[in-house]
Design a protein around this nucleic acid. Structure first.
Length: 418
RNA sequence: GCGGUUGUAGCUCAGUUGGUUAGAGCGCCUGGUUGUGGUCCAGGAGGUCGCGGGUUCAAAUCCCGUCUUCCGCCCCA
C-alpha cells in the first residue's frame, strides 16, 4: 500500500522487535568487554581495493556480491561486505597493531552489504558482531576466540548448535592438498557441467562443502587435508583442540570445513545452528596470519570470528528463547479538572528520578487511558481523577499484584522505591 | 546468477465456474456497563485486492510484464 518500501533484502527493525536486537548486541558487548576487548567502529564504505586484497579476487563475495560505486572524486568505493578487513585497516592506521609483540583485542558491531538473492537469514544488508585478536600466534588465541563465540550463544540461550573445527594449514599444505583433491575428483569432474569445473579451477577446496549428493559420494573416500598439514600447523591445531577440551568446549573436528574468504590460515571454524534451513552457519571464523601483511602492515598473526545477528535471532525464535519486552515503570491516568497538569508534573518528577513513565496526551476517556496503561506493560498505574486532585493525592495501582492505595502526592516517589 | 513459490484491511486469512457498493476473526477508535485494564453491549474507522499493461459488456478472479516474499541451488554470517 505505501509507495515506498525498504529495498529488496533489507528491512526495518520496529519497536516491537528492537529489544531483541538490543539483547543480542548488549550480550555480545558485555561478553567482549569481559574478555578485555575494546570496541572499534569503522566506516560503512571503504576503498574497493581493501576488500579485493583481503577477500581474494576470485572469491564469490568480491566477484559478484559487492556494492561498489564511484564517488564524485572518481574513487572506487565499496560498502563493506565483511568486517575483518576494515577492522584490521583501522588497527593499522591507528597503530593499535604493528609494533613488535603488540597484541590488540577489538570487537565490533556492524552492518555488512552483499548483493545476494535474499532468503531467510540472508539479506543484502545483514548485521554482524565479531572480534579480532591480533598479534599472537599462540594456540591459546584461537581457543580464546572460539570459547568466546560458544559463550556468546550460551549467554543468549541458544542450545541447539554445534561447533565445527578444522585446520586448512598454510600455502604448502593447501597446494599439496589441492593437487590431491583434484586428482581424486578428476574422473568424476570430467562428466560435470561448467559449474563444478569453474569452481574446482578457482578453488578446489570449495568442492568440499558441497551439498551435491554425487559429489559427496565421490568425496567420501577422498584424502583429508589433515594428512597434509605441516608439523607446525599440526602441533598448532592439536594444542587448540587440547585447550578447548580443557575449557569444556564441545566441538567436532571436521576436515571438510573450509571458508569462503581467502585470507584464512590454519584454524577455521564454524558454529552451526540446527533450525536455520539452508543458512545454517551462525558464526564463522578462524586464523588469518597473512591478512595484516597483505593490507600493507608488518607480518602479524591474527584470529577472529564474525557472528550473524539475524541468524542468532532466528535461532532464538526457533527455540522460543527471545526475551520479553520490558515495560515502563509507570503509566499515569488523568481525568478531570487540573488532572493533566498534575500528571505532567508527576511524570517530570519520576523521570528526573530515573524512572520511565508515559501518559495520554490526547484527552482520552479514563477507560481508554486504563487500556493504554495496561498495554504499556507498566509496573504501576497512577490514577489522578477529581477526587485525587482535590485531596492532593494519587491512587497507585500495582499492576502485577492488583494492590491499590491512595497516597499523598508528595509520597508517590518514595512509595515506588520501597 | 539459476529453478520454484508468494502477494486481498495493522495481523491471520476467506472470496465458489470472471458478474452489482470486496468479507470474517483478531487488533484499532468511540460510547455504554463495572470508581479502574479484563468481560459484556452498541457503534465506527481502515483496502484503488503488490504495481503496470492486456483480454472482456464486466477482472481480486484469465493472459503478459514487473516488483516483492519465502524455498532449493549457489554463496555465506
Amino acid at each position: 500500500m505505501p509507495k515506498y518500501k525498504a529495498p529488496r533484502g533489507t528491512y526495518d527493525v520496529v519497536p516491537e522487535n528492537a529489544h531483541h536486537w538490543r539483547f543480542v548486541e548488549d550480550t555480545f558487548a558485555e561478553l567482549a568487554t569481559s574478555y578485555g576487548y575494546g570496541e572499534i567502529r569503522t566506516p560503512v564504505f571503504e576503498e574497493t581495493d581493501l576488500f579485493v586484497r583481503s577477500s581474494g579476487d576470485t572469491s564469490e563475495v568480491v566477484t559478484k556480491q559487492m556494492y561498489t560505486f564511484e564517488d564524485k572524486g572518481g574513487r572506487s568505493m565499496t560498502l563493506k561486505p565483511e568486517a575483518t578487513a576494515p577492522a584490521i585497516r583501522a588497527c593499522l592506521e591507528h597503530s593499535l597493531i604493528g609494533q613488535q609483540s603488540q597484541v590488540a583485542r577489538v570487537w565490533y558491531k556492524t552492518p555488512i552489504f552483499r548483493y545476494e538473492r535474499p532468503q531467510k537469514g540472508r539479506c543484502r544488508q545483514a548485521h554482524q558482531v565479531g572480534m579480532e585478536l591480533v598479534g599472537s600466534t599462540a594456540p591459546a588465541a584461537d581457543a580464546e576466540v572460539i570459547e568466546m563465540t560458544v559463550r556468546f550463544y550460551q549467554a543468549l540461550g541458544i542450545k541447539d548448535l554445534k561447533v565445527l573445527l578444522n585446520s586448512i594449514g598454510r600455502d604448502a599444505t593447501r597446494a599439496a592438498y589441492r593437487d590431491a583433491i583434484m586428482s581424486h575428483v578428476q574422473g568424476w569432474l570430467k562428466d560435470q557441467d561448467d559449474e563444478f569445473r569453474v569452481k574446482a579451477e578457482k578453488n578446489p577446496l570449495r568442492l568440499l562443502d558441497t551439498k551435491d549428493p554425487d559429489l559427496l559420494a565421490v568425496l567420501s573416500d577422498a584424502p583429508i587435508i589433515t594428512d597434509y598439514l605441516e608439523d607446525a600447523s599440526k602441533s598448532h591445531i592439536d594444542e587448540v583442540l587440547r585447550l578447548l577440551g580443557a575449557a569444556g568446549i564441545e566441538f567436532e573436528y571436521e576436515p571438510r570445513i573450509v571458508r569462503g574468504l581467502d585470507y584464512y590460515t590454519d584454524t577455521v571454524f564454524e558454529v552451526q545452528g540446527m533450525n536455520l534451513g539452508a543458512q545454517s552457519a551462525l558464526c564463522g571464523g578462524g586464523r588469518y596470519d597473512g591478512l595484516v601483511e597483505a593490507l600493507g602492515g608488518p607480518a602479524t598473526p591474527a584470529v577472529g570470528a564474525a557472528m550473524g545477528i539475524e541468524r542468532a535471532l532466528i535461532a532464538l525464535e526457533e527455540e522460543g528463547a527471545l526475551p520479553e519486552a520490558a515495560g515502563i515503570d509507570m503509566f499515569i491516568v488523568a481525568a478531570g479538572d487540573g488532572a493533566s497538569e498534575q500528571a505532567a508534573a508527576l511524570a517530570r518528577e519520576l523521570r528526573d528520578a530515573g524512572l520511565s513513565c508515559s501518559l495520554d496526551i490526547d484527552g482520552r476517556s479514563r477507560k481508554a487511558q486504563m487500556k493504554l496503561a495496561s498495554r504499556s506493560g507498566a509496573t504501576w498505574t497512577a490514577i489522578i481523577c477529581d477526587e485525587e486532585v482535590s485531596a492532593n493525592e494519587v491512587t497507585l495501582l500495582n499492576v502485577e499484584t492488583g494492590e491499590q492505595n491512595r497516597v499523598a502526592r508528595a509520597e508517590v516517589l518514595a512509595r515506588l522505591k520501597s
